[in-house]
Each structure stands twice: as C-alpha cells, then as structure tokens.
Amino acid sequence: MAAESLIIAAEPLIRIQQLSKQYKMGGETLKALDEVSLVVNKGDFIAIIGPSGSGKSTLMNVIGCLDAPTSGQYWLDGEEISRLKENKLAEIRNRKIGFIFQGFNLLSRLTAIENVELPLIYRGVPSKLRREHALEALRKVGLEERIHHRPVELSGGQQQRVAIARALAGNPPILLADEPTGALDTRTGKEVMGFIKELNGLGHTIVLITHDPVISEQAKRVVRIMDGKLNEEAGGRNELHTGV
C-alpha cells in the first residue's frame, strides 16, 4: 500500500480532465469525446478498448498530441499541452511519445536502422550517438542482425519490431500503441503482445488502443470507450478519478 500511495502522490504521466473533442459534420456537431477524464501513472499498462466509431481513434490522436481537443485539459508529464501550437506539439511527440501503429508505418525507402534513427534525427541528436541509440533499440527488439534491411525484406512481425524499436529509440516516457497486432497473424500478434508486456515489465508506460478484448485482457488496466465516454472496467486498478 505504501508503494501505491507513492505513485498516486507523484504527478501522473497523463492527466486528462473534462476533455471534449467535437467535429462539425454537415451542420451537425459530433461529440467524438465527451468530457473525458483519465489518469495514467508511470509504469501503467492501460488498454483503451472500444468498437469503431466510439471515439477511440480521436482519444488516441489527442493522447498522441496529433490532434488538439476542443475543450478540457491534458497534462502530459507535468505540462499542459491542449492549447500548444503545432511545432511545439511536434517537439512533444518527439520527446514524450513513441508511436506503434497498426500498419507499422515504416518508411519503405529507408533501412531498418534508418527508420529507427528518424525520431532522433528530428530531435537533433548527433549522428554517432544516434547510431548507438538506434542500434541499442534494435538490439532490444532482437533485430540487430537485420539493421540494413528495408521493410519489404522483413516479415510483418519483424516490421512491427522495427516500429517498436523506433518508438523506443528516443526513450520516450509513453509508448502509444494503436492496434499493434491488427496487421499481424495470431501467432506473431501474440509475440508482439508478449514483447509489449515485457517492455512494460522494464518500466515503460504503455497505452494500448484496440477493439479486441483478448488483446486488452493482457493490460493491467482496461478502459472501455463508448460514444465518446470512458468507463473503467473491473479488474484494473480503480483509480480512474483518483488524484484528480
């Protein structure tokens, strides 16, 4: 209990308060996110689950700093970022968030190591150090043998591991995974999930977005999203509104 109270006392990594996102579609206002509140602490492994159209992607975009909310507050690692300008957001994405996409989203013209280096390039890391970091990240995902392969020369699972290495390379506090197994077969999907779990075990905070209950079961916490509203499921630690 002492450990638990320590975590709560510390500033959470993600603190979302009454956050709304509205889209105007043909004169009608669509509430993709409706006064959502969410807290993610350091070391958490949280799954956000919901069917398509539930506002899941919008929430991911907002958490990933790809999109700005209409109203509400978003504190990321002690910084209020909901009103920041595009360039500042790019910087925060670069430093704070490692993206793992469903479709891997590797640059096909670059080799594995070049792909992994990319976030470091935009951070302005000098080339030698960049190479070291990228190599280390690729070693973590077990691909140090294939650093000079292009994505087309790698299997789906390997591609996703390169993508994970890219997310890890900058050593961001949060890994944001959007359906990381969506484009993989069950077996490699399982492998990748095992890997993500392992990363969580090493201390990485993971936010996983999925529509698949089987996948979400592997998370420590599961948050269900429906019609733009969040609902924490039993089984996870019930701290949805704690510390707010």
């Binding site: 360039n87 790019a90 910087e91 670069n94």
Partner: peptide, 10 residues
C-alpha cells in the same frame, strides 16, 4: 504524416 507523427516540425 509518419515523419510528423514522430516529431518532424513544419
């Protein structure tokens, strides 16, 4: 889009 997502500025 990918470049921007992982931190490329305008």
């Amino acid at each position: 889009g990918i470049r921007k997502a992982i931190g490329a500025k305008k």
